[in-house]
């Protein structure tokens, strides 16, 4: 049994993005997702592909200040937006305190979910600089970690918040 695909014409649309502070202009087919364009066209592979249904959060990026699952955003929808990926957090080769805390607290095992986790945690702290454990667990529930580093990830966020207070 096969399902016959209906091939429709695809629009190619010019878009302009600012990705990790750098303006990028390109032509994209309308049906391609932001994740596809980041990974395949811009070779920013920190955003990972896993579930493609907005459950795992491995593809999380910040779009105009808010985290999104980039697998559920068309690239054309992001036209005119500012995007931050995991690659864009550290500057001049210096890790952010949050990234350092991820390593210090042991929040990284295989690392595949980690770019998404770091991006989500970064946005969480931007919105709520002093979160409770419960707020962290709720705020990062959209980022699955099968290695099960959830406690260590929460520790890293708490430690970062505490470091910022000092």
């Amino acid at each position: 049994m096969t399902t016959e695909p209906t091939i429709h014409a695809s629009d190619t649309v010019p878009i302009s993005l600012v990705v990790n502070g750098r303006p990028r202009s390109m032509q994209v087919a309308a049906h391609r997702t932001l994740l596809d364009v980041l990974r395949d066209d811009l070779r920013l592979t920190g955003a990972k592909e896993c579930c493609l249904v907005g459950e795992c959060g491995a593809c999380t990026v910040i779009l105009d200040g808010r985290t999104v699952d980039s697998c559920l955003v068309l690239a054309v929808e992001a036209d005119g937006s500012e995007i931050t990926t995991a690659e864009g957090l550290a500057s001049n080769g210096r890790l952010t305190p949050l990234q350092e805390a991820f390593l210090d607290e042991g929040a990284v095992q295989c690392g595949f979910c980690i770019p998404g986790q770091v991006v989500s945690a970064h946005a969480l702290l931007a919105a709520n600089p002093d979160p409770t454990l419960e707020e962290i667990q709720e705020g990062l529930a959209g980022n699955l970690c099968r290695c099960g580093c959830y406690w260590q990830i929460s520790d890293a966020v708490l430690a970062t918040a505490e470091g910022a207070r000092r």
Binding site: G54, T67, V68, D69, L72, V73, S120, L140, A141, G142
Partner: peptide, 9 residues
């Protein structure tokens, strides 16, 4: 409704 990422969209 979903995760933070979903609720943002």
């Amino acid at each position: 409704v979903g995760s933070v990422q979903i609720r943002n969209r």
